[in-house]
Design a binder for these strands. Structure first.
Lengths: 252, 252
DNA sequence: GCTCATCAAAGTGCATGCAATTCGTGCGCA
DNA sequence: TGCGCACGAATTGCATGCACTTTGATGAGC
């Protein structure tokens, strides 16, 4: 009768996890750039909750390494160093290796369809400039992880994929996504064939090609207002129910 | 000037992280068994903080998978399934593999000394019944991870090592530690020689021997009072300063 | 013009209070 | 004796309030 938890590692109460999800999306779609400030009140205001809840959400995201929390200081979106990035990719390759081992030759028809559908979606959202395409590229890997049915693997791959994605927004050029899409298709094909070694090498070069072509660029840093930036994410969060915005504390 | 953060992944404010550390220790030393209830007020009372802080700490530990949080329900120490355990060990082996690759043949004299000192400490605390020896065995692996200087690796290995340790308290017999100690010594030796492959196989069989000899035993479940159980951990937490205990709400 | 002290505004750290939910126990009834 | 039900105690969910810290802007002194 118990629905076999599987996902949902922590994500305690609903409101907190809603905010976490929204902020994660905002970060990986680069609406929130590294270094962006996240004051508790503003978040609370935007999502229609008190500071307590916003604070809790920030704590969770900090545990995932997506934001940085320093005592008595405003939380900011994490700004990983280049060294951090290399570390992350190293670990990520090992983890994805495990995913591949779980999955090679064992995909069900439904799963194959789901993967293809996802890549089709990536195709539709093509164009490196579209923030959605960045997110989808990352979520392809997360989708693969989910198919292992291994909660730990799911959590770690998700977390590290998000972090890598964050890194990219710091170091990489606009993210040439057609390349990634083709590589994703090749990976699916090899997985279906059960050609584990092929998938491994594909995955390796795939991740490396993303990480490798990174070049250090100064952060663009457009400084929009946080309430504006988060508006679409807050809307989607509660299924379209636009949260209250009593005082239009615009232009902080 | 900035001291190059490096460690400290999340662990926001001091009080929260103190409680987290104390609970982690209590859990891996099996003072808190899987399924043990952790009401917010009791924790707050024991550590001399309000529910707010205790709650935040529980959130962090839930993110690490050490405790389980369900809406409107008392937090409990996680009770990993056997399947979870296998998953954890799979991932762990990959992660430790990375650690070994970082470290093989690259250990400094100081690091070698530190490792030997640690194993000596394990030796001293010998005896599977001593909860400290269990903790030290786990912390050997965490110590190795720390030597990689890779924040991500440190965090993941620590986390998963704790979780594996937790699993053991559910499924394993008392944990025959002399064996583990010898294996630890062998691993150090091979690491020093730079014999990467040897370390790998040692590590693999080491972890496997720990996981493999697990047998499903019904949880013992002694039901002591939470305040009693946590007393020593709360003391150590704040450097010996015993926290206030205004109302002796004994024998809940 | 530049540096440094001072102070208000903004923000976090934490405790407390109230509403809502769950848990456990005793009672009624079969 | 066994089973269901209902009510009170225990506990969580969340917002709010106050104290303390940081920030950054203003003005005095050099």
């Amino acid at each position: 009768m118990a629905p076999r938890a599987a996902s949902k590692t922590a994500e305690s109460s609903d409101k907190v996890s809603v905010i976490c999800r929204a902020l994660r999306r905002a970060i990986i779609e680069q609406a929130l750039e590294p270094g962006a400030k996240l004051p508790e009140d503003s978040l609370g205001e935007r999502f229609g909750v008190s500071r307590t809840i916003a604070r809790h959400a920030l704590g969770q995201l900090a545990a995932e390494g997506l934001i940085e929390l320093r005592r008595n200081r405003i939380a900011v979106v994490a700004t990983p160093s280049w060294q951090d990035a290399r570390d992350a990719f190293d670990v990520r390759i090992q983890l994805e290796r495990l995913v591949v081992r779980h999955l090679a030759g064992k995909l069900t028809k439904a799963q194959i369809a789901e993967l293809n559908a996802h890549v089709d979606a990536e195709d539709r959202a093509r164009g490196g400039s579209d923030p959605v395409s960045i997110r989808l590229a990352t979520e392809f890997h997360i989708l693969l992880a989910h198919m292992t049915n291994s909660p730990i693997l799911i959590r770690y791959v998700s977390e590290i994929a998000y972090r890598c994605c964050l890194t990219l927004s710091l170091f990489s050029r606009p993210h040439s996504s057609e390349c990634a899409i083709n590589e994703h298709r090749a990976i699916i094909a090899a997985l279906v064939r059960g050609d584990e070694e092929k998938v491994m090498s594909l995955m390796h070069s795939h991740l490396d090609s993303v990480a490798g072509r990174a070049l250090v660029t100064p952060v663009p840093q457009r400084g929009r207002d946080l309430l504006d930036i988060l508006a679409p994410y807050a809307e989607e969060a509660e299924g379209g129910r636009v949260v209250k915005l009593p005082k239009a504390a615009r232009g902080r």
